[in-house]
Design a protein around this nucleic acid. Structure first.
Lengths: 193, 193
DNA sequence: CCAATAAGTCAACATGGCTGACATAACGTC
DNA sequence: GACGTTATGTCAGCCATGTTGACTTATTGG
């Protein structure tokens, strides 16, 4: 695969005829970082666009997708936890959550310990849609990783985690742990957000 | 650095007490891909949030940032080209572009060949703001790459490029090339989008 | 009984997408 | 020089999804 994004001196020379000069090497090449900034924007667009077009068929948007995703990943999630993950207001969440519940994609059950809580679960219908969305995004990521060498997998995850805002890192770490750990979030003692 | 995101069998065992079983290894672990999906969301949020808070001080949003960014990267950009990069309607662009021009962050000049064209440039003021935004994002990316091994740089760019939607790839490739190539977009013969 | 908590709801507003329709100026051609 | 095309700008209105503030309801626990 042609390495489109790299800026090795030889390629720089070959592609543009401009000789590399010392100023380009201020730590990491500014040009490379600029390329990353831009790529991140386009990559995120690529990441979401296929799922968006499926969601559109259901009259849903990306906000609905997020709810489906995190409920899928954390069955029995409390509304308050979801709010904390998404960092939006309950009014914003309510709008999309209500639709998802009304249309039977998400099921709410009162908590058995504390009946004020509404634990969120996917219905079969909700699981079907979520699976479809997940598969399309997983496929794209898998395809992207496939072209890269071994270790790309872990390196990419580490890069992405490092990009997460500091204040979000503990939460994201807990989410990843609980999900790959196996014990559902509602039954863990130490993961109650 | 603790590798938070990896799912090596040993860690899986240590973290959750759940033994790894064969079904986890369907090509790439589904759990790892799910983690990537989630990480991409949180990472993009981390990527944008600092810039967003600066923009807010100016009464601008992410839409303004995109315009500033691409004009900075492609001085003399035509409105039509910008529309094609952003994939939004001219009405949506007009709203933010008008603000940026009215407030003196962006300068429009009629093209010298075709005077219908409005070539876009940053004013000194616009360049100052854009630099501030770029620096904060570049710093975050640099920080994220710093923790990873050598080669993370190129691998990350390649991963991100691979995530770009197929229909966008030629355009993104051209953008990267023109910018690292050196010849400004308005003077190149073969890059006229 | 009562204060605190989890959740839901109503109203209003901002941003940034969208569509459709139309205006203006400049270009190029017949 | 008239005319069709192109590049851009603009008006009006709609939608999705974020925000704030205020208030209700059900439930918990002291």
């Amino acid at each position: 695969m042609a390495d489109i994004t790299s800026e090795s001196p030889s390629e720089k020379l070959a592609a543009s005829g401009r000789p590399p000069h010392a100023a380009d090497d201020d730590r990491r090449s500014t040009s490379d970082l600029l390329a990353c900034i831009e790529l991140f924007y386009f990559a995120y667009r690529g990441f979401t666009c296929e799922a968006d077009s499926i969601l559109e068929q259901y009259g849903f948007g990306r906000a609905h997708h997020r709810v489906l995703h995190f409920v899928n990943r954390n069955p029995g999630l409390k509304v308050a936890e979801l709010l904390d993950i998404l960092r939006i207001t309950k009014q914003s969440l309510a709008r999309v959550l209500k639709q998802l519940v009304d249309e039977g994609f998400i099921i709410q059950k009162a908590g058995h310990e504390d009946r004020r809580e509404r634990r969120l679960y996917l219905s079969a219908k909700g699981a079907r849609l979520t699976d479809k969305l997940t598969q399309i995004q997983a496929k794209r990521i898998e395809g992207a990783l496939a072209g890269l060498g071994s270790g790309a997998d872990a390196m990419t995850r580490n890069f992405l985690f490092a990009m997460v805002a500091e204040k979000d890192k503990p939460r994201v770490e807990a989410l990843l742990r609980s999900q790959r750990g196996g014990s559902p979030i509602e039954e863990s003692e130490d993961c109650n957000l």
